[in-house]
Amino acid sequence: MKRPIWALVPLLLLLGLVVMLYNGLGRDTETLPSQLVGQPMPPFQLPSLLGADSELDESLFRGRWMLLNVWATWCPTCYVEHPYFMQLAREGVAIVGLNYKDQDDKARQYLAELGNPYTHVVVDKRGTLAMDLGVYGAPETYLVNPEGKIMLRHAGEVNARVWAQKFAPLWPGREALEQDAGRDAHGGKAP
């Protein structure tokens, strides 16, 4: 009896899947490696959410340490981390928002009602800049130095714990902020 070749196809597919999953084991899901760490911000030219008819580009990230936060109104975790960004903004951290695959009016309403922690909001409706950055999904947050180089990438929620562990060690003038991070009660793990 001839054995049909197609009957082996599912087995081969499974083999591929298992190899892939095995490689993924032990992967640190919070510090996703980014090809871009140490690289300059990719060039872009995209509209601004809040400034009418104005366009923003990579020169935004010059002259001071900044955070780039990828967010969207359809992203539940963004709501969770939003109060923490409000707090950082109050403490003088400059945060640029990247509004990712979202609707402008919804995004504006979100900021109007929950508060705006961002100095600028870049509108990335088609996800082109996010693609260049290698964004897996919202939220993600990048640390950019005054020369416009990406120093750190964090996938997922930013809270006091993450700030203290990952961002604060790289951030200049860290002592003041670290103390603050320790005090914050909302830093518990988000759902």
Partner: peptide
């Protein structure tokens, strides 16, 4: 599984609700 496939193939595409 895309985060894993992306790792393996070194392709950067983001997957989300849309």
């Amino acid at each position: 599984l895309f985060p894993l496939i992306g790792d393996a193939l070194d392709v950067r595409i983001s997957i989300s609700a849309p």
